[in-house]
Design a protein around this nucleic acid. Structure first.
Lengths: 188, 188
DNA sequence: CTTGGCTATGCAACGAGTTGCATATGAGGA
DNA sequence: TCCTCATATGCAACTCGTTGCATAGCCAAG
């Protein structure tokens, strides 16, 4: 049910429509929790029927109407309760690592392009995070001092930055290893 | 379908039963891909019916019979084909980060114990990985030189080690931030 | 005036993953 | 004898998540 909680957090930070939430899940919240618009619409509907959210239909000019959701009392209570529960530490889901081990049973060098591609994606994400950090937290236009919400958003963003840096360094290690093995014969 | 591929890799490394695979998914392979035994049994059955795996029923003394699975031609081909396809870079799923941002709407200090608990889990995992590295790759009892499969297993393990170290450092940052905010009033 | 793009919401079908339960063998300890 | 533990496999029901498709309004470009 973590999507439910991610939605509560996002709507507490700022009310919005399903469509707007879907876009937030492509950046910001989406850095550490993903969801497609279909999933979001479905869960929003369920949460509204459970009384966690309130809806307001807004007519808009030059675009379709939208439904703006906001968190109401029971939703806030549900989030608060969840914060007091303990969750189990993340289990990894690293498909590329599966591929790398699998490469032992084929030609490891076929993975070089793939790993290079992933590396570039992580370099782009890092640049994106760093730009966001400068804009919102450490640059001249950032508010000082930061409030609690901003401090917490910043520490989460620092986690994302650390993750991307670590990943890029590891992919460099992977590439060096694949290139070193390049001339070796494939394993039985 | 990544579970399918993780199973192919694991069974190519060494044939085994569903039960044995389930235990491998608690260590080794499980460091970067998780699965429960129910899922594994179900997928094994499907893969066998699709001709990717062969089964051998083994009678055992002093324990129940088991079914030993191994990869056959088409399974190997399926893995090889997957290695040549490209996958999309991982999307994050970091529930703790959602909680941290959510803490802005409650008392941030309630998370301190939770974060400390996660930190300890990652310290334990790091110690476990380092012990495995010493045993299998860098210690005096490790084979020299390593073959291709071992080199690739090692580079994946180095990724796990880097991940745990990064995570521990980040959780220290999170704890320092939570403690600093400890005396502040909760956000609106 | 048609096409493509952005906003905005949604259904239907499927596949992936979790939780709870059920069953059975045999070892070792209370 | 009974209980628990480790081995070993599995069903049923459910939730979560993805993919493909559909609809609809309005704008701007060609």
């Amino acid at each position: 049910m973590a999507l439910e909680h991610a939605i509560l957090v996002s709507l507490l930070e700022k009310p919005g429509s399903g469509y707007e939430l879907a876009r937030r899940f492509e950046r910001s919240i989406g850095y550490f929790w993903t969801a497609t618009h279909q999933q979001i619409y479905r869960v929003l509907k369920r949460m509204e029927s459970e009384g966690l959210l309130a809806v307001r239909e807004l007519s808009q000019q030059s675009r379709p109407d939208k439904k703006e959701y906001s968190v109401v009392g029971p939703g806030r209570a549900a989030l608060s309760q969840w914060l007091h529960e303990s969750i189990q530490p993340e289990s990894m889901r690293h498909e590329l690592a599966v591929k790398i081990r699998g490469a032992a049973f084929d030609d490891p060098s076929v993975l070089i392009r793939e790993v290079e591609r992933h590396r570039q994606v992580h370099i782009d994400r890092l640049a994106h995070y760093l730009a966001g950090e400068l804009r919102d937290f450490t640059g001249p236009a950032a508010p000082t001092p930061l409030d609690t919400g901003q401090e917490l958003q910043h520490v989460v963003l620092r986690g994302g930055i650390a993750y991307e840096r670590m990943t890029i360094a590891w992919l460099d290690d992977v590439l060096a290893t694949l290139r070193r093995l390049g001339t070796s014969p494939p394993h039985a």
